[in-house]
Design a protein around this nucleic acid. Sequence first.
DNA 1: TTGGATAGTCAACAAGGCTGACATAAAGTC
DNA 2: GACTTTATGTCAGCCTTGTTGACTATCCAA
Lengths: 165, 165
Amino acid sequence: MADSGSPGGETLLFLTDEQLRKGIEAMFFAYRAFTADPDRLLEEYGYGRAHHRALHFINRQPGLTVTTLLAVLGVTKQSLNRVLRTLIEDGLVESRVGTRDKRERRLHLTAEGETLERALSEAQRGRMRSAYRAAGPQAVAGFRQVLEAMMGPDLHKLYQMMKDD
Amino acid sequence: MADSGSPGGETLLFLTDEQLRKGIEAMFFAYRAFTADPDRLLEEYGYGRAHHRALHFINRQPGLTVTTLLAVLGVTKQSLNRVLRTLIEDGLVESRVGTRDKRERRLHLTAEGETLERALSEAQRGRMRSAYRAAGPQAVAGFRQVLEAMMGPDLHKLYQMMKDD
DNA sequence: TTGGATAGTCAACAAGGCTGACATAAAGTC
DNA sequence: GACTTTATGTCAGCCTTGTTGACTATCCAA
């Protein structure tokens, strides 16, 4: 191989421990900013980040079962149930008994739930949009590539389960 | 406008709400994987993620003050102090009174602290390295660009304060 | 000498993870 | 039909890690 793209050459400087550390720190700081906007909104409603995550994925896959949501969120059912219970009590989420399998609970957002989800999502998308716009389409493609490689096969499967563009 | 590279044309499809949502989910899943490896290690030692973060930044900037670390981590001093106290008691971190300003406590890792930090860092860098390698240098550049744009000016300042490559 | 900055401590509380134990209903199996 | 498995929910209790508020001590600088 000529020069660029050759393994072991200068092109591997991006795999330096120092470069990796900067990447780690970038993830740390960016994730903090990433959650800051919805967190502010959630506080007004008396909810936490866990509620946001539940609302997000119920919105993405209306009618998903509790077990599926459990797998997507990666928490215990007790932990999810606490969050889900308040959302149902407050009328943001509706839990319908499954038609084929009556053990299942299929989760849907109510109109009110959709309103909050939209507000949270818009807050988060706002930051994401300006970051995307500032970095440009090619950078965004790279961003997605690295994140997808980082999440590993199991999480990538869940990631792809979500409704695509 | 023509077609490629023109603002407002098809090249802005990466700013779609659906694209932004996928980016949000990629951050969510990738961050989970990102913390999973060190978390496993930490559990063996009876520490949490907060301890990891403290060790990381003390290692990066040996001799930093508590106030600086507070700003970098974005938590209250009570919260940090609890973590810092256990690390000092366990002999992983040393707190030296400042020479010029004796109010300051300058934080350093002990040899034992460096050992744990290295183990945690290596676990985390391992995943980062394979993601970088899989995605390639151009993708990595885009990844960093988007994250830096996402963190906003305040966090970007802290980010740049950290020792560069 | 007084005011502000830096550091630490104590107490109390909340969110949101976790485990373990147990209950119920539905579905599947033998 | 009896038994097992699956899906869900619930109770109790624990841990980490964040929060606020109040208070102390030290030191620097005006």
